[in-house]
Amino acid sequence: MNPSRPADRPVEAVELFIPPLPEYLQLVRAVVGATVGVGREDELPLDPGGIADLRLVVSEAVTNAIEAQWSIGANDRILVRCRPDQKQTVVEVVDRGPGFDPDLVPDLPPVEDEERLDHESGLGLSLMKRLADGTVVETGPGGTIIRLVVEYP
């Protein structure tokens, strides 16, 4: 029997459970990028720029998850679930942090404002909202799920 690539079978969900450590961010980006970026270039659902954006928003979500768990000393593994289908890729990042209200994330001062330089963080959620086609945050005292939707052109 000759093993061969199942050409027409859709890629199923890929799940990663990672320790809450920044050293794993690169692995997450590589795996998520591979779920939509493997195959002939002209057949990929996203161009290289689209794949870079997908990797970036997932990196932001996992960074948030790591910081959330660090804030309460939670060592639970973080779940990253990537589900590509015919029209879009959905990535969910699930943490066991304390939860947060996305509506209460303060706006940063305008970029020309000198005070803006006092803020070295706080851009992650904004980047996700700008680059993903959908960003849904489900949060509570038991943790947070960030669901990112990236549609194919």
């Binding site: 690169q26 970036l56 990196s59 960074t63 803020h119 992650g124």
Partner: peptide, 11 residues
């Protein structure tokens, strides 16, 4: 790869 945490370090 550059993300918001890296941008924070540049800022």
């Amino acid at each position: 790869h550059l993300d918001s945490t890296g941008l924070g370090a540049v800022v």
